[in-house]
């Protein structure tokens, strides 16, 4: 094929040129990988990063404590975020101007702050600001609140968009049947809105799963450690990086399926019924 195409008058065909450029890219990429692989000290890497002895000792605690706590923190944060996010979305759409203002300010403030700052505020600021009060639930409660108040700002915008994506005619049909505004919202609009926002909320869940690692800054007991803290502590104790790798794999076991699920739900929504 090459001889024939090279013979085309006016130089190389477009297809031929694209092929050459592609192969050049592959070649460069392979060269970089090769150089890195040759420079690396494999035996040392194996001992430090993929040490079976160290890895085996992590079980079952990395699952029963680390992964379990990550899931708990994430779930509580998601629950608080969803409830609060729904309330703020409804306030954002309210006909009462003060509610709308409050919701707008809330959303802008919490989307504009680093999550770490919110964690520090919950850990340090709340006890200082309201002496004698603590957020119930200990580390779980504190993490849930920190993750929840922040996630609520993002979820509120997502839910609002979902509500607005439900056609006006749906509300009109519901109201024509004698449903009150609230009843129409609860029975007709929200069920449809939630179907629309499941994929973005699933992505939010992935973000929360990763962000739950910030509980590190609240100070937790041995039993309250989640994956990141667990991995870091053991890596320090053993002078070995394997625990970090194992913790990372544990995250991916949760986050990758969730991301795939979100993408499939999204695809089904666009390609599916109707």
């Amino acid at each position: 094929m090459t001889a024939e195409q090279a013979a085309v008058p006016g130089g190389m065909s477009r297809r031929r040129r694209r092929q050459i450029s592609l192969w050049t890219q592959y070649g460069l990429f392979a060269a970089v990988v090769l150089v890195v692989a040759l420079l690396a000290d494999w035996p040392k890497l194996r001992v430090n990063f993929a040490n079976w002895g160290v890895a085996k000792d992590l079980f079952p605690d990395v699952i029963t404590v680390g992964l379990r706590n990550t899931v708990v923190y994430t779930a509580v944060g998601f629950g608080i975020g969803l409830a609060l996010g729904l309330v703020i979305a409804l306030m954002r759409l309210s006909s009462a101007a003060p509610y709308r203002w409050f919701a707008t300010v809330y959303i802008e403030v919490f989307r504009g702050l680093p999550l770490l700052l919110i964690f520090i505020f919950v850990g340090v600021g709340v006890p200082l600001a309201f002496p004698g009060t603590t957020i119930p639930g200990g580390a779980v409660g504190q993490t849930g609140v920190a993750l929840g108040v922040s996630a609520a700002a993002y979820m509120a915008e997502t839910i609002r968009a979902g509500i607005e994506a439900v056609p006006r005619g749906q509300t009109e049909a519901a109201r024509s049947l004698g449903m009150s505004h609230g009843r129409a919202m609860a029975s007709i609009v929200l069920p449809q809105a939630f179907r629309i926002v499941v994929p973005p909320l699933t992505n939010q869940l992935v973000l929360l799963c990763k962000d739950s690692s910030l509980v590190l800054f609240l100070g937790v007991t041995l039993e309250q450690r989640e994956l990141t803290k667990f991995g870091r502590d053991l890596a320090g104790q053993q002078g070995n990086t394997t625990p970090i790798i194992v913790a990372g794999i544990c995250y991916l076991v949760v986050t990758i399926p969730l991301s795939l699920l979100a993408r499939r739900l999204e695809a089904r929504r666009h390609g599916g019924r109707r």
Binding site: P167, G169, Q170, E172, A173, A174, I188, Q192, R274
Partner: peptide, 8 residues
């Protein structure tokens, strides 16, 4: 309604 507006 013209556009039915059934609850999907």
């Amino acid at each position: 309604f013209q556009s039915f507006n059934l609850f999907p």
